[in-house]
């Protein structure tokens, strides 16, 4: 018993030291505060079956600042749902709440409600049913949690022998806008071939905009061409929000030539 307690303390200290080192070397970020709660959770969940998953989440959070909120939320919800001791479930709730406080995400209310309810309900089986049930209900009524501000992604470009080509990532509900900036010199004719799908209706699903011009397109394939000058940016925007059983996705390839 004494060994387990001292191990817990060692794990807690290791986690806090890693957190301090990360902030010392990479610069302090308030968004890293939930990571302290995650390391606390790691320490007190030692010797439980959820420990390996929380450990994996801790490593993801430590390696990747961008995936850190995701790692903390999954760990927190996992602790709320499966933690046998009240202190584990409460720490899990604090992990969820502190993440949502510092990094606001859309549809965060169901997360808080489910985490709080799970932390307070003592019966394990009830909790195991509550989480999936809450998941289904919240998806239907409020949608999935997602970032409040979805930053547009800039597509990579290469120019070889006067020919321009863009490397465009997939556009979906987690990456809703991709920007194609014009080269900073010369006038370019740019073509773009788009393939969009994953929806079950014919309502427009994307907007292609250049300057003040905007074109709404339905799912299917389209090829468009534009003339671009320095300072122009072509934007591909998914205008659909999340809807259950829809997998809205846009694939595009684009290239151009200098006039």
């Amino acid at each position: 018993m004494k060994t387990i307690e001292s191990s817990k303390v060692a794990v807690l200290l290791a986690g806090y030291t890693a957190w301090a080192a990360a902030n010392l070397f990479r610069g302090f970020s308030p968004a890293s505060i939930p990571l302290i709660v995650l390391f606390t959770l790691l320490g007190i969940s030692l010797s439980t079956s959820m420990f390996p998953l929380i450990f994996a989440c801790s490593l993801i959070g430590l390696i990747s600042p961008v995936l850190m909120p995701w790692a903390v939320l999954v760990s927190g919800l996992l602790a709320c749902a499966t933690g046998s001791a009240m202190k584990i479930r409460i720490t899990g709730f604090i992990a969820v709440a502190s993440t949502l406080w510092l990094i606001p995400v859309s549809s965060s209310i169901p997360l808080i409600v489910i985490a709080a309810a799970s932390a307070l309900i003592g019966k394990k089986h009830l909790r195991c049913f509550l989480i999936p049930a809450g998941f289904i209900i919240s998806v239907f009524f409020t949608g999935l949690p997602g970032s409040l501000i979805t930053e547009p992604v800039i597509a990579g470009s290469t120019i070889a022998a006067g020919a321009l080509s863009y490397d465009i990532p997939e556009v979906n509900t987690s990456r809703q806008e991709v920007l194609l900036p014009a080269p900073f010199e010369g006038t370019w004719v740019v073509w773009i071939a788009i393939e969009a799908g994953g929806v079950r209706d014919s309502i427009p699903m994307m907007a292609i905009s250049l300057g003040e011009d905007m074109l709404f397109l339905q799912s299917g394939t389209d090829t468009l061409s534009f003339t671009m000058i320095p300072g122009d940016t072509l934007a591909i925007t998914l205008v659909r929000k999340f809807k259950p059983f829809n997998h809205s996705v846009i694939h595009a390839v684009a290239g151009g030539e200098r006039l």
């Binding site: 998953l53 939320l73 970032s147 509900t173």
Partner: peptide, 20 residues
């Protein structure tokens, strides 16, 4: 059970990051 719940929570939160 922890694995099944982690997947459920992960699928719920997938839009938080483009590679989540």
């Amino acid at each position: 059970i922890p694995m099944a719940l982690s997947f459920t929570a992960g699928a719920w939160l997938w839009m938080l990051h483009q590679d989540a």
